[in-house]
């Protein structure tokens, strides 16, 4: 009987449990495919993404060009694949930046009573700005570059993570095992990381998937508006932006990068929903 006892709701393998949720599983599979496509872009693409072919400009989708060509005769399929690298990378790094800032602020606000009011007001103030406006303002102030777009979006999304972390920290701070840890001489930074942060990971993971999706959208939005990453680096947003001028004559220029965004964001949202259902004990009962 040693160690074989398992209590409901505590099965160790999250992936196995995800299998029981078809929509979440679909999200995960699509996400893996998109990520692989982006990673393997140099091998999968049929043309070099920057290769010009003026003769073949604005060719509709067909056997030679799977998704057609753009106004400079570049292969859309290859560019969508390569853009995926940038877009996913931006999304990933934005989640990273937002997590670092958000976790730090959230832990401070949730754990130390005196810091709560000032930090929470700061979070509220940041959330009062419309996301995209704040991002534009930050990019305008910092200068348009890939790094600055990532930083700006990271700052924009940090308050959401901070709120989630703060709320969970407020609860966990009062739990007996935190008091027990303190009574046994565990230093505060260790309590924060080992005992509080580790127990916040589930809601954090759920939020992170949503922020990933939003960051991809926001990056596309910024690029479309021309304040994002410079147009010579292909991203889904810049592709849609250039395609807009040819919307009536060559709709495929916008269609395929747009589809890529829709599919990726939808997959992330489905996965996020599934994770939330699995990781929230109040919702987990009806599985």
């Amino acid at each position: 009987m040693a160690g074989a006892v398992s209590v409901a709701g505590q099965e160790p393998n999250l992936l196995m449990r995800l299998m029981s949720r078809p929509t979440a599983l679909a999200g995960l599979v699509v996400l893996v495919v998109v990520t692989l496509a982006a990673l393997l872009a140099p091998w999968l693409s049929t043309h070099a993404p920057g290769q010009l072919s003026i003769v073949n400009r604005l060719t509709p989708p067909g056997s030679a060009y799977l998704m057609g060509t753009d106004d400079l005769g570049r292969d859309i399929f290859s560019r969508v694949l390569h853009s995926g690298r940038t877009s996913l990378m931006v999304g990933f790094l934005v989640v990273g930046v937002a997590s670092v800032i958000g976790i730090f602020l959230g832990l401070i606000a949730g754990f130390f009573r005196k810091a709560d009011a000032p930090v929470s007001r700061l979070i509220d103030a940041m959330m009062a700005f419309p996301d995209i406006l704040l991002a534009i303002a930050l990019v305008a102030a910092l200068g348009a570059s890939a790094t600055n777009v990532i930083l700006a979006l990271g700052i924009v999304y940090a308050p959401r993570l901070a709120r989630v972390v703060r709320a969970s920290t407020l609860v966990i701070r009062e739990l007996p095992y935190v008091e027990a840890a303190r009574a046994l001489g565990v230093p505060t930074p260790v309590i924060l990381v080992r005992h509080v942060l580790r127990n916040v990971t589930s809601p954090l993971l759920v939020q992170a998937t949503f922020i990933f999706a939003q960051a991809i959208l926001a990056e596309a939005g910024l690029s479309f508006l021309g304040v994002g990453i410079s147009p010579d680096i292909p991203t889904w947003g810049t592709m849609i932006s250039t395609g807009r001028q040819f919307m009536s004559t060559a709709g495929w220029m916008m269609l395929f990068p747009g589809l890529a965004i829709v599919v990726t964001v939808l997959a992330l949202q489905l996965l996020g929903d599934g994770l939330r259902d699995l990781l929230d004990p109040r919702l987990a009962k009806d599985i």
């Binding site: 007996p176 095992y177 027990a180 009574a183 046994l184 001489g185 565990v186 080992r194 580790r198 127990n199």
Partner: peptide
């Protein structure tokens, strides 16, 4: 002092340990 010289045990054994 805590843990090394003076230690404490509590009323709620069910929740005094970190579940993770």
């Amino acid at each position: 002092m805590r843990g090394r010289e003076i230690a404490m045990i509590f009323q709620e054994p069910m929740t005094s340990l970190n579940p993770l």
